[in-house]
Write a protein that binds this DNA or RNA. Structure first.
Lengths: 170, 170
DNA sequence: ATTGACAGTTCTAAAATAGAACTTAAGGTC
DNA sequence: GACCTTAAGTTCTATTTTAGAACTGTCAAT
């Protein structure tokens, strides 16, 4: 599968993976949320090669996650700031950080703690149902095909059936 | 930066990216949550090359996200199921799907809808503060160094300062 | 006139990925 | 007993991506 094919998939996960699903994009976005904005600052704090950084920034701008804003004329220089679409990635970043906090920390403990300014306490993010407010778990969720589902919804046919169907078509 | 270096970073995001930060791992995990368990089924539904699939499954098992369970003897065959550590990835998957639903769907609409069995309604996931229950946004969160922070906390010194410091050291 | 900051671009070597064919092991079919 | 099928990989070559370092173009300050 080519990279571009991912964006076309009728799957919201695949399309998001097309934006953030590589080694560097999420790390760049982490820096954005920590208020890093400039090329050399990204490069210095991440140790990414300049080539890849230029490439990834271009991609994030193309997807509308970052925007280039001029901060000086002559020579014209830009900084990269999060758009609303980019700010909306916050729950993804936080859920990733939280999973790492629970499952990937070493004996020294968490690298970062998060304070919720609104209530003043150190917190963890919790994912809840928008309708009833209960915490979510996979087993209490049932998936239905939506209006944008692929005709014949292969995500709902079992892969086993699909394999057979493909074999018959061939 | 090498792949293995990521797991060693004192950053919960980087360490999680070491597990799920590539083109395929999240797609494989999506299939796991949709109850795909077997090699050929993953291969058929994703179109991933068999080589990469074998490699990624091995990696996910190594990280303790999937477990290999024998489902028949002679010839011995295994299926891959989510561990608790893997099930805990659910909020990450859901926040990614949700962002895609909001920002990446085409005119046809969402490919999938989610029903919360507990309350019977179609829902979206919402990330809230574990302490006060309010929805989270980046600007209401303040970051502190935790016990596992790098000495001299480079994530909190501005990259600009760091760049200077590095230059001085050289 | 030279040096330094900043934001890239260019180059070569190394690593990862795609795509297809091959392997191993057992069961069933003619 | 030769042959086909299922399942879960492994092996192979060609292509694409990434790493790492050096280079370019603008302008400001010394």
């Amino acid at each position: 599968m080519k990279w571009d094919a991912l964006e076309e998939e009728p799957c919201s996960l695949a399309r998001t993976v097309a934006v953030i699903g590589d080694r560097w994009s999420l790390l760049i976005l982490r820096e954005c949320f920590l208020r890093i904005r400039r090329f050399d600052d990204f490069q210095a704090s991440l140790g990414i090669t300049r080539h890849l950084l230029a490439d990834r920034l271009k991609k994030l701008v193309r997807f509308g996650v970052l925007r280039k804003i001029p901060y000086q004329e002559a020579p014209k220089r830009y900084e990269y700031i999060l758009t609303q679409k980019g700010l909306d990635l916050y729950p993804i970043i936080m859920s990733i950080v939280h999973w790492g906090n629970i499952h990937m920390v070493d004996a020294r403990g968490r690298p970062l703690l998060h304070e919720h300014k609104s209530c003043g306490k150190m917190f963890d993010p919790v994912m809840v149902c928008s309708e009833c407010g209960e915490p979510l778990s996979a087993k209490h969720v049932h998936v239905h095909p939506g209006p944008g589902a692929r005709r014949s919804s292969p995500l709902h046919a079992s892969a086993r059936e699909r394999t057979k169907r493909n074999a018959e078509q061939a």
